[in-house]
Computed example of a mutant assay.
Amino acid sequence: MLVRYFAAARAAAGTDSESLPLEGPAPARREVEELLARRHPHPPPGQPSLAEVLARSSYLLDGVACPDPHTPVHDDAVLDVLPPFSGG
């Protein structure tokens, strides 16, 4: 799957996107979040951790809002991580 990070998520992850191989049954979005937080445990100085940013972010799965953390994410999916913008 492809994960695309925006704004504070990009800063915390240190990249604007990454490919994430998913094996076996499709994990829930929440499990993908946990995997991403483990892959990026150390934020740049002065930035919140990726785990903190993910906890307050909204998500698009293949271009559609994905508010349910139990939604399955398939290997060919695109997941956009959208933290709150402009303090909102």
Rank of each mutant, 00 (worst) to 15 (best):
M1A: 08
L2W: 12
L2E: 14
V3Y: 00
V3A: 01
R4K: 15
R4D: 02
F6C: 03
A7W: 01
A7R: 04
A8H: 07
A8W: 00
A9Y: 03
R10H: 13
R10P: 08
R10N: 08
R10Y: 12
R10D: 10
A11H: 12
A12Y: 03
A12E: 05
A13C: 12
A13F: 10
G14F: 05
T15P: 03
D16H: 14
D16I: 07
S17V: 05
S17M: 11
S17D: 12
E18P: 00
L20H: 09
P21G: 12
L22D: 04
E23R: 14
E23C: 11
E23G: 15
G24Q: 13
G24I: 09
G24D: 13
G24Y: 11
P25T: 14
P27H: 07
P27G: 09
P27I: 13
P27L: 11
P27D: 05
A28H: 06
A28E: 07
R30E: 15
E31D: 14
E31I: 01
V32T: 02
V32R: 00
E33T: 09
E33M: 14
E34G: 10
L35H: 11
A37L: 11
A37N: 11
A37I: 10
R38A: 15
R39Q: 13
R39K: 14
R39M: 09
P41L: 11
P41Y: 13
P41S: 11
P43R: 09
P43H: 07
P43A: 13
P44W: 03
P45F: 12
Q47A: 15
P48D: 09
S49L: 09
S49G: 15
L50C: 09
L50H: 00
L50Y: 02
A51H: 11
V53T: 07
A55N: 04
A55L: 07
R56G: 15
R56F: 09
S58C: 12
Y59K: 02
L60E: 01
L61W: 06
L61P: 03
D62I: 03
V64F: 05
V64R: 07
V64K: 06
C66T: 08
C66A: 15
C66V: 07
C66H: 06
D68H: 07
H70G: 13
H70Y: 05
T71C: 05
P72N: 10
P72Y: 05
P72L: 11
V73C: 05
V73Q: 04
V73Y: 02
V73K: 02
V73R: 02
V73L: 10
H74L: 09
D75N: 07
D75L: 04
D75W: 03
A77E: 03
A77C: 07
L79F: 03
D80F: 02
V81H: 01
L82P: 01
P83K: 06
P83S: 11
P83Y: 05
P84F: 06
P84M: 12
F85V: 15
S86A: 15
G87Q: 10
G88K: 08
